[in-house]
């Protein structure tokens, strides 16, 4: 069928008269919906892969090496490790969700659509970072379930959550912060390699050295001091306190620093949207 035939109809849309537009919330929720659907469409990469990842950590560190590591208050190493892995999964996935969404949209040219559309910078940031947060929370939940299974298998008991409200707070603030950081990095990135370098040289060292796998008491005084300058240390120990009821830092200090991080990373994101590039690669 030649095209011209199907175009022969008069340009009279059934949607006339002009559709009323709701420019306050609809653009924001549409972008949020897109962000969530994006990672759900590739759930194998975005949810299953992190699950296998944390399963491997639990197997190697928790079960095989963990029996030789002592935590002073008598907690098993596996219980100590689970909160750290939950937060690591949450932060990592929040970061990679927003960064790969932005970078992917740059690659396809879709990012320019956001700029031309009636979406404010704040709306773009919140929609993309909430998308990242949802993925972070899902991965955190999945890690928690896998961890519980390991714990039950090894010790015949489940880990109960001591402070659920605080747990939600730390996961939410951490996930949002890292989603915003990922968004900022992606707006400045000039290529996929650029973004990967940020992950390898900055993000990974901060996460691994942030106390996921060890307690401060296992470190020499020099590393103890250095670790206290790592903002991730507070996110991770906040979650550890929420679940176990004890951690390396005062929980209210962790609370305060987490909020400061969120503000700081939101500022980064806002700055990146104004100064970074929407242009396609």
């Amino acid at each position: 069928m030649p095209l011209s035939n199907s175009w022969g109809i008069k340009m009279n849309s059934p949607a006339k008269p002009f559709v009323s537009q709701e420019l306050t919330w609809t653009p924001f929720f549409s972008l949020l919906k897109r962000e969530v659907q994006r990672f759900l469409k590739v759930a194998v990469q975005t949810l299953l892969a992190p699950m296998i990842n944390s399963g491997l950590y639990l197997l190697i560190f928790g079960l095989s090496l963990g029996s030789r590591i002592q935590i002073s208050d008598g907690t098993s190493y596996l219980s100590f490790l689970i909160p750290g892995l939950i937060m690591m999964g949450c932060l990592n996935n929040a970061f990679s969700n927003s960064s790969s969404s932005v970078v992917g949209s740059k690659y396809g040219g879709e990012l320019e659509d956001y700029k031309a559309a009636p979406l404010s910078s704040q709306q773009i940031i919140w929609a993309i970072s909430l998308g990242g947060l949802f993925r972070g929370l899902l991965v955190g939940l999945v890690t928690f379930i896998v961890g519980e299974a390991f714990l039950y298998f090894q010790n015949g008991e489940f880990l109960s959550i001591q402070h659920p409200v605080l747990l939600v707070f730390f996961l939410t603030v951490g996930g949002l912060s890292f989603a915003k950081l990922g968004l900022s990095a992606a707006f400045w990135a000039k290529s996929f390699d650029h973004l990967a370098a940020f992950g390898t040289f900055i993000l990974m060292p901060l996460i691994y050295l942030g106390g996921v796998f060890y307690s401060l008491e296992h470190l020499s005084p020099f590393w103890q001091t250095l670790t206290q300058f790592n903002p991730l240390f507070y996110f991770i120990n906040g979650v550890r306190y929420s679940i176990l009821g004890a951690s390396d830092v005062n929980v209210w200090m962790a609370f305060g620093i987490s909020l400061i991080m969120l503000l700081l990373f939101h500022g980064f994101a806002l700055f990146s949207l104004k100064g970074g590039s929407f242009n396609r690669w």
Binding site: V19, L23, P27, Q37, G109, D113
Partner: peptide, 21 residues
């Protein structure tokens, strides 16, 4: 423009949303 994992219909739905519909 490429839209990764979305279908034509989905792309148009999202785009309508960005414009408040």
């Amino acid at each position: 423009v490429n839209h990764g994992f979305f279908s034509a219909f989905e792309v148009l739905e999202f785009h309508s949303g960005y414009y408040g519909i």
